[in-house]
């Protein structure tokens, strides 16, 4: 696996993260809980594959499933919260998860060496099981799912709930179901993404899942636009890959990154994919003869 493949894999993981963040924004919920689910998925999958020898995808699905359930459990109490209050409550969830892993010590001897999560010191020698096709394969599945949902009645319900969740129930939309389902799907996507991340880097620690990751998620949806799923995907890809081409800036690389973010946001205030671009894309697809 060359350098380009590695960068593509990292970009792919960031894109998955962006998608999981997008899902709750799509329904109008400002949720920052995905970092916490990413962490849970990472540790869960790492423990299953490394400590108990599970193969990758069963481990991912198991962790993802647990995250989905937790997503539902989190979604319900959060129904009452809106806007920045919701953001902060979900941020609190992610931070609590991080503190949990900072204090989690669970080691079992593997070939004589104690292995497992060790609090602040992290979880080392995680079995490297993630290939680039696992990442992009899951991304494809997620994209297909989102496109399908978009075109179904659920998509209309989601759009309606996002636009105005006070009026939506009068149109017969069960917004409780919609919001909790969004939380669940986002949590599961993040859980599986986190598991893929752990299987890729071979070492995870609580610091990986801190506030900077939350900020990154916000950047992806802000720059990409919350209107479409491919906006945040594009933003994630650009923000991961573009700085690589500016490595010659060495010490100034991060300043460049900050400037890039400001410029992108100022040039496209409603996101890279805003209403106009989205409408143009839809029109382009509509030109094709519809499948029966």
């Amino acid at each position: 696996m060359g350098y380009a493949t590695t960068i593509l894999s990292l970009a792919g993981l960031n894109v998955l993260f962006a998608l999981s963040v997008y899902i709750t924004f799509a329904i109008g919920q400002f949720s920052l809980a995905q970092v916490g689910f990413w962490a849970l998925g990472a540790y869960g999958t790492a423990m299953l594959t490394t400590l108990w020898g599970w193969p990758l995808w069963p481990a991912l699905l198991a962790s993802g499933g647990v995250c989905a359930l937790l997503g539902i459990a989190l979604g319900y109490p959060c129904l009452r919260l809106r806007g920045f209050y919701l953001a902060l409550a979900t941020l609190g969830f992610s931070e609590t998860v991080r503190v949990l892993f900072q204090n989690l010590e669970y080691q079992i001897p593997l070939k004589g060496v104690p292995s497992g999560p060790s609090g602040v010191l992290g979880f080392r020698n995680v079995a490297v099981t993630t290939g680039i096709w696992d990442i992009f394969g899951f991304m494809l599945v997620l994209v297909i799912l989102l496109v399908w949902l978009n075109h179904s009645r659920i998509g209309l319900a989601v759009a309606a709930t996002r636009e105005d969740d006070v009026v939506a129930p009068f149109m017969g939309i069960n917004i409780v179901f919609a919001k909790v389902a969004a939380f669940m799907l986002a949590a599961m996507a993040a859980g599986i993404g986190g598991g893929l991340y752990a299987g890729f880097t071979s070492y995870i620690s609580p610091d990986d899942f801190g506030f900077h990751m939350t900020l990154l998620g916000i950047l992806f949806v802000a720059i990409g636009g919350t209107r479409t799923f491919y906006g945040p995907m594009l933003a994630a890809a650009i923000l991961t890959v573009l700085p690589e081409f500016f490595r010659f800036l060495a010490e100034y690389r991060l300043i460049f990154y900050g400037a890039l973010v400001v410029v992108l946001m100022t040039l496209r205030p409603r996101g890279l994919i805003d209403e106009r671009v989205d409408a143009a894309v839809r029109r382009w697809f509509a030109r094709k003869p519809r499948e029966a």
Binding site: I218, A222, G258
Partner: peptide
């Protein structure tokens, strides 16, 4: 006119800088 998320990005960018 950019919605509530946009300033997050620009101010975060400025903070990094």
């Amino acid at each position: 006119d950019a919605g509530y998320l946009a300033p997050f990005a620009t101010t975060a960018g400025i903070t990094i800088i």
